[in-house]
Simulated scan of single mutants.
Amino acid sequence: MKILLVDGTIIGRKTGAILEQVKLYIEETNPELTLEIMNLSDFEHQFVDGRPLGDYNEDMREMVRRFTEADGYIIATPIFQGSIPGVLKNAFDMLHPRTMRYKPVSIVANGGTYQHHLVIENQLKPILDYFRCLVTPNYVYTHTSHFDETNSIINEDVHDRLRELARVFAEYAKMSTHLSKETIDNP
């Protein structure tokens, strides 16, 4: 199974640091999964305005291709101004509604206040529910205080929760192989 780990921002390093740690824990839990990190900062983004996919630049089409070919996802996002970054929402707006259907998804996020975890519940989960993803029940939210000056995670509870997220994600990935996937070409 091919799992896409999405760094959902174009600035900062904490989100990427969480994603790298999750990748290590998933590799320990299930080494058969093929893991690929996709940094949204590596793409030249265009504003999604409803035109056909072929009218967007090569980077936007490549991003859609990677989402489409993946069998599961880890979505990593910072919380800015009480919301997910616009670049992440723009990426979701590029996707066909069936792209992520019945595929496992886990969420990791970071923010500057402890209340920002609610953005996951109020914004990100509804988007993933719209796509009919298999969202694991245990997301991990981190706070600035969980990192040192090099953006390494220094909080053991966060490490424990990331290990648990990796374990649950691996089980959801296994479970998803038994579900039929509706293809984009099949209405």
Results as ranks from 00 to 15, higher is better:
T177G: 09
L5M: 10
H178L: 14
T9I: 06
L134F: 07
Q46K: 12
G82N: 12
N155Y: 10
G82M: 11
I184H: 04
L179R: 11
L53C: 06
L33Q: 08
C133W: 02
G50Y: 07
L118S: 10
T9Q: 13
P31K: 11
I10Y: 02
D185S: 14
E164G: 06
D157R: 12
N155F: 06
V108D: 02
I120Q: 00
E27H: 08
Q81D: 06
I3Q: 04
D93G: 07
I75E: 02
I127Y: 03
L128N: 03
S176Y: 08
T99I: 05
V48N: 10
N39E: 09
C133S: 13
F43E: 06
V22P: 05
Y130P: 04
K103L: 06
M100S: 00
I79H: 03
F169D: 09
F67K: 00
I3S: 07
A170V: 10
R161A: 09
M175T: 12
S145N: 09
Y102M: 12
G72T: 03
Y172S: 01
T150I: 05
F169S: 11
T113V: 06
R98D: 13
A76F: 00
P31F: 04
F67V: 01
G82R: 06
E171W: 09
T99C: 10
L124D: 03
M100A: 01
S41M: 09
R65V: 01
D148G: 07
M175L: 14
M100R: 04
N155T: 14
R132K: 15
